[in-house]
Design a binder for these strands. Structure first.
Length: 210
DNA sequence: GCCGTCAACGGGGCTG
DNA sequence: CAGCCCCGTTGACGGC
């Protein structure tokens, strides 16, 4: 799983703009028209205006909402910056905002949305990978079931396994699998009547310890 | 008209 | 407590 880097960027602040603050009331305004940077869209900033006239106000006194579309150049620079750092420190944010003629809050929002898109893409890729893996396991499971059926059909007597402890053959019927930890264990009742079992093999009782 | 995309918002959690 | 981030959502817009 990829972890987004939080290291500082190499970008440095070189220009400061007086009065270019980001007070909460300023940022949380539902209308972007009152923001001075948005009143006169520069040639580098492209606005898509709704059907409402600029001067028209809504019944509740709010100004109509406009939709900002970043220009290709702005998007390119933001993407370029994103490849270097997935997060920005305040200086980098201010610097980018000045460079792109956007508000720092817009830079911040763009990076948040960009990180979200990255994560979504990553999740979709992981989903695809898991789907393929599931398909592979399903196919493998099918083949193993088929193999088991073929072995059962051979009817060559009771199957035996070699004990890893004694290196002697064990009747497979004496083996069971613990449903909790899925470890192969010996059947106690059967083992007691069998002389094949060696003392090294411990009986296993499923418990909460598994 | 529906749907996908994207900028923006609001709330909650975390941290120094 | 300010500042930041994440997350879910909203609203505007474009494409079909």
């Amino acid at each position: 799983m990829a972890v987004l880097p939080r290291s500082p960027s190499s970008l440095e602040l070189t220009i400061s703009i007086p009065g270019f603050g980001s007070s909460p009331t300023f940022l949380h305004s539902s209308s972007v028209k009152e923001l001075d940077i948005n009143q006169v869209p520069s040639e580098e900033e492209e606005w898509v205006v709704s059907n409402m006239e600029d001067e028209e106000e809504l019944s509740n006194g709010d100004t109509p909402r406009k939709k900002l579309r970043l220009t290709k150049e702005q998007s390119r620079l933001l993407e370029e910056s994103f490849t270097q750092n997935h997060t920005l420190n305040p200086k980098q944010k201010e610097c980018l905002a000045t460079q792109l003629k956007l508000r720092p809050r817009q830079i911040e929002v763009w990076f948040q949305n960009r990180r979200a898109r990255s994560k979504l893409k990553q999740t979709e890729m992981e989903c695809e990978y898991l789907k393929r893996w599931f398909g592979t396991l399903t196919e493998q499971n099918r083949r193993l079931h088929k193999e088991v059926e073929e072995l059962r059909a051979m009817k060559v007597g009771p199957p035996t396994v070699i004990s890893p402890h004694s290196c002697e053959p064990l009747p497979a019927s004496t083996l069971t699998m613990c449903p909790r930890c899925e470890r192969v264990t010996t059947n106690v009742a059967t083992n007691l009547s069998s002389k094949v079992v060696t003392p090294t093999l411990q009986s296993h009782q499923p418990s909460a310890a598994c």
